[in-house]
């Protein structure tokens, strides 16, 4: 099951990269593209957490989610000036 989950997580990451590129090309703005990429990366992190995760997997998933939250908050914050 772990191999299947790893494959699914890898596929989800690839989907995220392509979808972010598509959104960037269509919308011409970075914010929606990054938001889409981070959504897919969160999905990949959740897939990796299923099964029997080790401490390093848990730490990696937590780091991805924390970075995601930080990036979304940073992108949503109003620009000074």
């Amino acid at each position: 099951m772990t191999t299947a989950l790893d494959l699914a997580a890898l596929a989800t990451t690839a989907f995220g990269l392509v979808a972010a590129a598509v959104v960037l090309a269509a919308a011409g703005r970075l914010l929606p593209a990054v938001a889409v990429l981070l959504d897919f990366l969160t999905a990949a992190g959740l897939l990796r957490l299923a099964g029997d995760p080790s401490w390093s997997t848990i730490a990696a998933a937590a780091a991805v989610i924390a970075v995601r939250r930080l990036a979304v908050a940073g992108l949503r914050a109003p620009r000074p000036g």
Binding site: A11, F15, A19, A43, A44, A50
Partner: peptide
């Protein structure tokens, strides 16, 4: 996991 993966595939297709 299946629900999450199906959601990712669906969203990818929609994009």
């Amino acid at each position: 996991a299946l629900i999450i993966f199906v959601g990712a595939v669906w969203a990818f297709g929609r994009f």
